[in-house]
């Protein structure tokens, strides 16, 4: 159950990145999973390097988040590439991000090979909590807290700050926003980078608990899609609720009837689409 919430926290980060970019740029970024995978691999490498260089192991959480943020530097160039097709049909945008998926998959293969990468012992460094018969790694709680904090921070950023107002204006009507003097290219570049950062940090945070694998990117996309569809496209609250539903459901399914792990999620996705086509937290009808 708590494992589900842990997974939900990570999933939320990736899905939030997807939602943010979709909400503003109207691009459904298939490559969000690739950013997540890149974040994971880069996190492993950076932590391993830092520990080798003598950094205290207890700092590794900070290093992971730092690695995610550093990696977000790939955001602007990727956004620059996507910019060439903003005025095209959505199908082309989807395909270009699919091209990115293919390329990033081999980039990872090139730098890190095909073997899974693990972080080893740092996972339990913060100790474990015993609640009754359960043993919970404190790290999981830390990540859940981090996920919640980031969710709150993004919410604050979008609703309370000047930057957030500009972003929401641009999402509502980009041409009008531009006519009012908003530097749209710069704004898009920043939003996209923020979206990338959410994905890479999510990938980095998950890594102490599992291993970085080649397939993790393309597998995450499917889950992130489920989250987004359940929650409603473009809605942050939806991403939050959707991630919780998917994460917990997955954990429950694994415990009870493993065959239904993903199947159950898709059944929910389709049920949501039939009963509430716009998602649970949709803003306007799609």
């Amino acid at each position: 159950m708590l494992g589900g919430v842990f997974h939900a926290a990570v999933l939320f980060l990736a899905a939030a990145g997807l939602q943010l970019v979709f909400g503003v740029q109207k691009i459904l970024n298939l490559a969000c999973g690739s950013f997540y995978a890149l974040g994971a691999y880069f996190g492993v490498s950076l932590v391993t390097w830092a520990l080798g260089a003598g950094a205290p192991p207890s700092l590794f959480l900070g290093i992971l988040i730092l690695s995610g943020v550093l990696l977000a530097a790939i955001g602007p160039p990727v956004e620059r590439l996507l910019r060439t097709i903003y005025d095209r049909d959505e199908s082309f945008q989807l395909l270009l991000t699919f091209a990115l998926v293919l390329m990033f998959e081999d980039v990872i293969r090139f730098f890190w090979g095909t073997a899974p990468h693990q972080l080893g012992s740092v996972y339990l460094i913060y100790g474990q909590l015993k609640v009754g018969a359960l043993t919970i790694p404190v790290y999981n709680l830390v990540v859940i807290a981090a996920g919640a904090t980031i969710a709150a921070a993004v919410g604050w950023l979008l609703t309370r700050t000047r930057f957030g107002r500009l972003v929401r204006a641009a999402a509502e009507n980009p041409r009008m926003a531009e006519a009012l003097g908003i530097d749209l290219p710069r704004l898009y570049s920043r939003v996209f980078t923020l979206g990338v950062a959410l994905g890479t940090v999510g990938g980095a945070l998950v890594i102490p608990a599992t291993a970085a694998m080649n397939e993790m990117g393309i597998e995450l996309i499917v889950e992130a899609f489920a989250v987004v569809v359940i929650g409603g496209l473009g809605s942050m609250r939806g991403a939050f609720a959707g991630a919780l539903i998917v994460g917990v459901l997955k954990a429950v399914a694994i415990a009870i009837y493993p065959e239904l792990e993903m199947l159950g999620i898709y059944v929910i996705v389709i049920a949501v689409l039939v009963l509430r086509p716009a998602g649970l937290f949709a803003r306007a009808a799609a």
Binding site: L28, E90, S91, L94, V222, F225, A226, V228, V229, L233, P258, E259, L260, E261, M262, L263, Y266, V267, V269, I270, L273, P277, A286
Partner: peptide, 26 residues
């Protein structure tokens, strides 16, 4: 077909993956 564009793409993707996980797990 109740949806178009991106939504249609996502839904078809979900159905494809539904079948995939069925094939994979059963």
């Amino acid at each position: 077909v109740r949806y178009v564009k991106i939504y249609f793409g996502m839904l078809t993707l979900a159905f494809g993956m539904l079948f995939y996980s069925f094939l994979f797990k059963f």
